[in-house]
């Protein structure tokens, strides 16, 4: 049987890769993918904990997170499209109208 700490280490790793990707990449779509990676780290954490503690709440929570992530994707990609229409780019460097 695989110990719990391995799952949690993988979850932390996934989450950290997501954070690094979010902070270093300049493309809105890649940043969005990094966000999903972070959420999946959380999901893995919850499911592993739920299995080892024999409590279903963690798994229920995971379902909610997956559902919300889908809704978030719909809105995020919609905003990305409207951004592309006005700027012809989804690069973060083109987001320069608002500053100060």
């Amino acid at each position: 049987m695989i110990p719990l700490s391995w799952y949690m280490a993988l979850a932390v790793l996934l989450f950290s890769i997501g954070v690094c990707g979010f902070l270093t990449r300049r493309n809105v779509i890649i940043m969005f993918l990094s966000l999903e990676l972070m959420l999946n780290g959380v999901n893995l954490n919850l499911v592993a904990l739920s299995y080892y503690m024999d409590s279903v709440r963690g798994q229920a929570f995971t379902f909610f997170i997956i559902t919300v992530a889908a809704a978030e994707a719909a809105i995020g990609l919609g905003i990305a499209i409207s951004l592309y229409r006005s700027r012809r780019s989804v690069h973060v460097d083109s987001l320069n109208q608002l500053k100060g």
Binding site: G41, I79, R87, L98
Partner: peptide, 22 residues
């Protein structure tokens, strides 16, 4: 300006939610 504001808010809000969730 609004789509720029929306994408900034969306990305930052999503990042904050992910931190909170962890």
């Amino acid at each position: 300006r609004t789509s720029e504001a929306a994408i900034k808010y969306f990305l930052m809000g999503g990042f904050a939610s992910a931190l909170l969730l962890f």
